[in-house]
Write a protein that binds this DNA or RNA. Structure first.
Lengths: 362, 362
DNA sequence: TTGTAGGCGTTATCAA
DNA sequence: TTGATAACGCCTACAA
């Protein structure tokens, strides 16, 4: 049946079985094998079983390259994250993997490391791999880059910033709720000198977190003060820098709310090495609730932004987009305060006097 | 030239340019375009430039699926890790990515999560994707699973445990050196009651680390004591459990060496909440030196196992294996103590008396 | 319901 | 050195 091959290709040694070997063994056509592997119901029961047996015997799995090349469907989802060294993202990746895997999808992860070239590279790869959707979890505005995905007609979900286009959805995180809870919490504990550290304002998410803080502060009748606002990298180092600036102030804050947990850990570090007790002298609140937050000393009070929720919604949105071609409504994602041990009542006498050195209270 | 297609395939809308469009624009054959994209020198200078111009104009990048399908080379490397939520691995992944990327490779990461089914899934995917090598950084014995890779003739590097087969290399980590330094360090500080926490012995790496400890202890004339040896999960929780057991002892250890940093952080946590001061009452040492180790309180003295080194050697070994088909010599990877602030002199009077509660010393 | 055959995008062989 | 073309493994329109 087959015309003699022109070139022998690469040696058969150790290669996995292909569809035609399965077909031959099951005495059917390749088309029938394909129907079986794709779960099409239009195949006779008896034949299907013969094919199934052959598949098992040869330990056959369809080659995704061939499949994708021919069908245009890759059963792969793209996941773009900012970095992989901030524990928030591995936790998000793991959740997304779990969910996608359960539905038979492979996940292709790209960590942009805040590098546009890298982002472009990953996006190009995703388009080439014909991913069936991309979750853009970068908290960042790579609008122009995403154009490549848009024009390839690939569905996308993003965080905070809606992506213009037909096949897109956006997860809108309710920063205000969690941050407002955080501010209320320390206010209830008597704090009035409340500081906020945020990431670089070039990321919209950081602007939103900061705005949430400012409006929460106003909410309780306070004014945001410039010297109590810090902007810097969303890292341990950034948090350390913030804390150093704060404790050097004439009028130092008695509560510090950080826009992510890594910064909060940096703050804890500097306060500890400066002999300032948390929470007795200063209360500290983080944001994200990474797994680690519960295990530092003191266990960190923080605002939880659930990775599971994020991953679930992102995946679901991608599935929905595949059904209806139109864009779908923004999806709200709640945040909520988790109270642990890094916050307590403001130190007596701290309300009216500058704090220069921390003195321990029982 | 082209015969009319039978079926229209999927709509051209937004699809990336393919090789034939480039060929047409450059007025050459697809073969020539292919030669250019593959950097074959057997192409005329003038033609090559015309092709290059067309490539840029159409923003063409070869489709990896088609390429891989035809050539059997995927320009992809597999990276198998144990988990992604222990910060050690993201740091390793990032290093490997950087190195592989610089040489034009794509990296396919699989986190087995200590789950054989998952490991098998990732391995199958890697074989299907025709990865050109796999770095098995799981610290685990999945020997039987790897058979699939061996029989596919895919080069592999592993850690600690050599993989039988033709195309394999092994990175042998010198646990002894680092752990011996750690033991010496606390011994020099006067500690004699030295405990060790290790991961489950079902991973060979854990057995090796433990052996390194035992032999280091003997080295300074001490005996390992069962009650000062803990075995449990390599996690924060595992470390907490270890610390709880240790401090409940009649004769509690004055120094605790952990076989990874996460456990050490768990130990720090429990000691802190038990009001036992580190390092004044108990010295603690970790293993790995994750980035975070420097930023906890107190900054963790730990044994560094360099991710950069691991990644570099793993990648290099994979490249070497591609050249010479034979297996290559084991590659030694050094470990070394990094002294920070979680270790200090043994508390006076602690040498001979059981420690029940920690009392602070100035 | 099943089989035939063409083509997805690329590279390798062969002939020119 | 260049071009024509078969084939990688698979899916799918169409015919039977």
């Amino acid at each position: 049946l087959k015309t003699p091959t022109k070139q022998p290709a690469f040696p058969k040694q150790g290669r996995a079985a292909d569809i035609s070997e399965v077909a031959k063994l099951a005495r059917v056509s390749t088309a029938t094998v394909s129907r079986v592997t794709n779960g099409l119901s239009t195949v006779d029961q008896a034949l299907a079983e013969r094919v199934g047996a052959a598949i098992r015997e040869l330990n056959y799995t369809p080659n995704p390259q061939g499949r994708s090349l021919r069908s245009g469907r890759s059963r792969t989802l793209g996941l773009l994250v900012s970095e992989i060294t901030n524990p928030f993202f591995p936790e998000l990746i793991q959740s997304f993997e779990d969910i996608a895997s359960a539905s038979g999808f492979e996940v292709m992860v790209g960590a942009t490391n805040h590098n546009l070239k890298l982002a472009r590279l990953f996006i190009t790869r995703m388009v080439q791999r014909r991913v069936e959707g991309v979750a853009v979890m970068t908290f960042r505005d790579e609008a122009d880059l995403l154009q490549e995905l848009i024009s390839a007609g690939i569905p996308m979900v993003s965080i905070d910033v809606p992506i213009p286009g037909q096949n897109t959805a956006v997860l809108q995180i309710d920063y205000l709720h969690g941050i407002n809870q955080a501010v209320q919490h320390v206010a209830d504990l008597g704090h009035r000198r409340i500081a906020f550290t945020s990431g670089p304002p070039l990321h919209l998410t950081n602007v939103m977190r900061k705005q949430a803080f400012v409006s929460s502060i106003k909410n309780i009748g306070l004014q945001d003060r410039n010297e109590w606002m810090f902007e810097g990298p969303h890292t341990l180092e950034g948090g350390m820098e913030a804390a150093r600036q704060f404790i050097a102030l004439e009028e130092a804050p008695t509560a510090i709310i950080c826009s992510n947990d890594m910064m909060a850990l940096g703050v804890l570090r500097v306060l500890a090495q400066s002999n300032i007790s948390v929470p007795d002298d200063v209360s500290v609140i983080g944001f994200d609730d990474v797994h680690l937050a519960e295990f530092v000393t003191p266990p960190l009070t923080t605002v939880r932004m659930s990775r599971e929720l994020l991953a679930t919604h992102a995946f679901q949105a991608l599935q929905d987009l595949k059904q209806s071609d139109a864009s779908i409504c923004p999806i709200r994602v709640e945040t909520a305060l988790v109270v642990r041990e890094s916050t307590t009542f403001v130190a007596s006498g701290m309300r009216d006097f500058p704090m220069h050195t921390g003195q321990r209270r029982a």
